[in-house]
Amino acid sequence: MIRIFIVNLVRFAILVFLQVFLLKNFTLYNLSTPYPYILFILLLQFQTPNIVLFVLSFVIGITIDAFYDTPGLHAAACTLLAFARILFISVTVEKDGFDNEPDPTLDAMGFRWFFMYALILTLIHHFFLFNLEVFRISEIQYTFTRFVLSSVFTVFLMLISGLLFFRRKER
């Protein structure tokens, strides 16, 4: 229990640090801005209670907001992401089927599941985030391009980090 707590605390600190100091002014052709900090929410343990999940999502969202000067924007998107995560896991994972509960990571769940998981949740998060930020129908086409390219970039970074910390489990 303590170990899980420390692992998540360190993950939180590293992801916020990376997002705020490295990736904040990082963009490809003014179109693709990655937000891989949502990996923190994606990698929380399966047995995390819903209330804890929502509180942590809100906290990481509002932390990013504080550094990005956009109070409430990332918090709203992260809350939606937490809800989408609950739905996605309840549809695709059987809760009781495991001997020892694995984490929703690349090495524990396999590439195909993790790819779908990361892709769908990132699309939902980014779609909500970009449209809430711009909030203008007249710019919808440009916003849509940004949303798609940014999602691709974010998922790419998530898969890279998943493969980087890949540990093959003996079954």
Binding site: N50, F58, T70, P71, G72, A76
Partner: peptide, 22 residues
């Protein structure tokens, strides 16, 4: 359906902050 109600509560707080302080 606690997930849904928690979602509504936190989303409401976020949007409230977004609209009020932005």
């Amino acid at each position: 359906y606690n997930a849904f109600f928690l979602f509504i509560i936190f989303e409401f707080i976020s949007i409230f902050i977004l609209v009020n302080y932005n």
